Structures are given as C-alpha cells and as structure tokens.
Computed example of a mutant assay.
Amino acid sequence: MPPTEAAPDARTRRHDPGRRDRIIEACIEVIAEDGVDGTSHRRVAAQAGVPLGSMTYHFTGRDELLREAFTRFATAMSERFAARLGQVEPGDREGGAQAVVDIILRDVFPDRRELVLTHELYTLAARDPAYRDLTNAWMRRSRAALERCFDPATARIVDALIEGMTIHRALDTQPHDDADVELAVRRITAA
C-alpha cells in the first residue's frame, strides 16, 4: 500500500488571528444592509466567510457583537471628525469654523451606509442605556475635538448643529444649498 498523507485532525483549529476583526467588520456591513433587526449570527458569519461556530467562540451573544460593531463605527467616525479639526491650530475660531463646514459637507454621512449605521445606533441608544453610553462617549470625543477651537458651550452647540444639519441634508428630498451650512456655522461660531 502506498504511503498517504495523514488527514488533518478535525479537532485542530486553523490559526486565524484576524477572524474576530473580520466578524466585527462584517457585522457593520450587515447592519448597513439589513439594519439591526436583520442582523443575525448566521448573516454575519456568511458575510465574514467564517463558520457559524466562530460567532459564539468570539462573542457571548448578538448584543456583544452589536456593541463591538457600533463601538468600532463610532470610534472611526469620531477619529475622522478629530482628524479634520486636528488640522486647525488650537484657538483658531476661523479655521475651526471652516473645518466644521467641511465636516458637515464632506465627512458626516458621505454615503447612505453611514447614515443607516448612525441611525440604527441612535435607535438602540434611545432604548438601551448601554448604547446611550456609547453615543455619549462619541459626543464627548466630538466636543473635545471642537474645543480645540471653541469654548465648551460653543462646542456643544456646534456639535448639535453638525448633527442636525447632516441629518436634514441626508434625509431632505429637496436640493440643499451649501451656503446655508456656511451661514449657520458662521452665525454660531462668531465671536
């Protein structure tokens, strides 16, 4: 009988150090496509290209997976926000105002995916204090970035303006005028 290669032991796990991260990224994509209600371990595993058993190996349940995915999303959004404001010298109100205009026009909700993800997170936060903690951490990071250029009270107001204007611009069926954004930011940030 010719020598044959030994079959791999079925109990041996394949080393895949990036699997957990892929699952989290896949979860973000599934939420963007199907919403939180359409997000299941089966759908996420299929999106990530991992066995279904990997889901329970890496996460205690769907809620932990959702929190991890939304934490990653919120952190990425606040890092983009901070990066834009980080290009401005501390205390430069004019530069800060222009950065806020750019955030509204270019950085927040550049596509439908981020709009859906943000609103899915807001819906969870309205119902569940754990998600509210996540959105509050996101707001604190945003305000800290704004405080590079504005006093704390102005930073809070500007943060709310960014939120409101981006939502209105994303959901309004009428065309928007970018000059309105510039006007609103300048009025609020005027010394």
Rank of each mutant, 00 (worst) to 15 (best):
residue 188 I to F: 05
residue 10 A to L: 12
residue 190 A to G: 04
residue 116 V to F: 03
residue 148 R to H: 01
residue 114 E to S: 10
residue 97 A to K: 02
residue 163 E to V: 06
residue 183 L to G: 11
residue 141 R to T: 14
residue 77 M to K: 04
residue 137 A to K: 14
residue 135 T to C: 15
residue 92 D to S: 07
residue 104 I to K: 00
residue 151 D to G: 00
residue 43 R to N: 15
residue 62 R to T: 15
residue 68 E to K: 07
residue 183 L to C: 15
residue 10 A to Y: 07
residue 92 D to A: 12
residue 157 I to K: 01
residue 64 E to I: 10
residue 186 R to M: 11
residue 68 E to C: 13
residue 151 D to K: 05
residue 97 A to R: 00
residue 169 R to Q: 09
residue 189 T to C: 03
residue 177 D to F: 02
residue 187 R to M: 12
residue 126 A to Q: 14
residue 55 M to E: 08
residue 101 V to Y: 00
residue 165 M to G: 08
residue 42 R to E: 13
residue 63 D to V: 15
residue 161 L to R: 05
residue 7 A to E: 06
residue 4 T to S: 08
residue 147 E to M: 07
residue 99 A to F: 01
residue 43 R to I: 04
residue 144 A to T: 07
residue 133 D to L: 14
residue 17 P to D: 14
residue 23 I to K: 05
residue 5 E to I: 12
residue 25 E to K: 08
residue 81 F to M: 09
residue 79 E to I: 12
residue 160 A to Q: 06
residue 164 G to V: 01
residue 149 C to A: 07
residue 169 R to S: 14
residue 85 L to S: 06
residue 178 D to K: 01
residue 100 V to K: 00
residue 190 A to L: 15
residue 42 R to H: 15
residue 129 P to S: 11
residue 98 Q to P: 10
residue 139 M to N: 08
residue 23 I to S: 13
residue 34 D to E: 15
residue 15 H to F: 08
residue 157 I to P: 01
residue 179 A to V: 00
residue 97 A to L: 00
residue 15 H to M: 13
residue 45 A to S: 12
residue 3 P to G: 11
residue 154 T to W: 00
residue 66 L to T: 06
residue 126 A to L: 13
residue 110 P to I: 07
residue 99 A to E: 07
residue 28 I to E: 10
residue 150 F to S: 03
residue 67 R to D: 15
residue 73 F to R: 03
residue 25 E to H: 13
residue 165 M to D: 01
residue 2 P to R: 09
residue 123 T to D: 11
residue 40 S to L: 06
residue 129 P to E: 11
residue 26 A to Y: 00
residue 113 R to N: 13
residue 111 D to T: 06
residue 2 P to M: 10
